[in-house]
Design a protein around this nucleic acid. Structure first.
Lengths: 242, 242
DNA sequence: CGTCCCGTTGAGGCGGTTCAAAGTGCGTGG
DNA sequence: CCACGCACTTTGAACCGCCTCAACGGGACG
């Protein structure tokens, strides 16, 4: 999911199918970089950790591509609870899918630099070049698939399965971005993870502790994850192995 | 959600925001009927209950618009569990969002007539008329929003809240289709509902029984729902009222 | 040094699942 | 036309995974 609608990589379209894909990714990189030719040359902006890039209800002025840093996409529900939708990593597009108003909030979890893409120019290109609309349609479709996968995960899988899958997804994501797949820093808090996985912070914490106790991961610091036994981690993530 | 990506009403775009919207619908009917002019004139096909209209993995030859009947959209997960994604009612488009292969199954739950729309002609129009791509992009975006709403529902709400919301959504849907909002037949089984709401059939059944016992609904037959006290039902669906 | 935020750990309770069995409606065949 | 089988639904009892509430620990920052 990492690369998704609200945080989608339109170009390479490497929709990971989501954190918890037990199936093949819906589709793989496509050529035809409609966005890069002339569109992805907007200005850069930098946000400190905890700064919002956009908020729900804001008029959509831009969509963004993360260059450096990490963004948490979330929505506040009527009862005050928070639903974390996604975490955007470098390369991901965010705020896509919002038509008039932003339908979610985007907050930097670490110091983040984004490239701004004005919605006006996007819409202009959409009107003249039919390929862009199609491309965005496909990106949204992939995202939808990933979100449905998540829907299943969250309803049917145990806390252990969810957390294991989550860590593996981060690992893969880091690998794809040319970073260390076996040791990485979590750019989000336990609370972010909990609200993403549909768990409480206590359960997330306990699950991490259990994984460390069982020797599957190491946690030198609470945010520094080392994957020790990825094989068993995969087994756990696929469930029915508890 | 009823009207959604895999079962989306592209034209009127009355994405109900989903069964469990605690917020406003993301957007309301839009004009500009790109599909109706020349595209929605495909052949009709009829399916008996339990007949599949398309299956996951099938090459996409058509998308469909339900004219009469009801379709259950679902996916089978690797562990054998089923995730019901949506129920399509008359007026809904189904199989939209599938690019090359179908990513879900569509099965008629009652005798169903659909209008077929060849994917080739859709793609042809998309290439020549930029508006269609945009339209589909927007439809997918709305669907995505609805699915995220569902994600929240399923992780954070109780069985009672989910079932109450579900019934209310069906009620509204019937009303919109010019049918009785307070008494209607469920076109799906308890199992379908359970797999949609992320519950077991036992829990769904018990919740129905409780609702009847509390005088909020009546169940002359297991599939015949009469909404007796919609006000209290709304309260229940919004939770924190148990 | 105190405060705040975040993470960890413990104890107890509960909602929903699991397993089991009985009830209901309907189509089919004798 | 009734008897049977089958699919679906309902109900009961016991269990359990996660949540809730509560307390404590540790690092960052003023």
């Amino acid at each position: 999911m990492l690369a998704t609608a609200y945080a989608a990589d339109v170009e390479t379209a490497h929709a990971d199918t989501g954190y918890f894909g037990t199936r093949d990714a819906p589709s793989r990189p496509q050529p035809l970089d409609l966005l890069t030719k002339g569109l992805l040359d907007g200005p850069l902006r930098t946000f400190e950790a905890k700064e919002h890039i956009f908020r729900e209800g804001d008029t959509v002025s831009h969509v963004y591509q993360v260059e450096i840093g990490h963004v948490c996409i979330y929505r506040m529900m009527s009862d005050g609870r928070r639903q974390v939708i996604d975490f955007a990593y470098p390369g991901d597009m965010i705020a896509l899918g919002a038509i008039a108003e932003h339908t979610a909030n985007g907050v930097a979890t670490t110091r983040t630099r984004v490239r701004c893409l004005s919605i006006a120019s996007l819409q202009h290109v959409m009107k003249t070049d039919a390929r862009l609309g199609v491309k965005l349609y496909e990106a949204m479709s992939r995202e939808l698939l990933a979100t449905r996968e998540m829907l299943f995960t969250v309803t049917q899988r145990t806390a252990m399965e969810r957390v294991a899958s989550f860590l593996l997804a981060l690992s893969r994501r880091n690998e794809r971005n040319g970073e260390n797949a076996d040791e990485f820093v979590l750019p989000m808090t336990r609370s972010d993870i909990a609200d993403f996985l549909g768990l409480t912070i206590e359960t997330v914490s306990r699950t991490f502790t259990k994984l460390r106790g069982d020797g599957l991961i190491d946690l030198a610091q609470s945010v520094l994850v080392t994957i020790v036994d990825s094989e068993r981690l995969v087994e756990l993530s696929e469930g029915r192995t508890n």
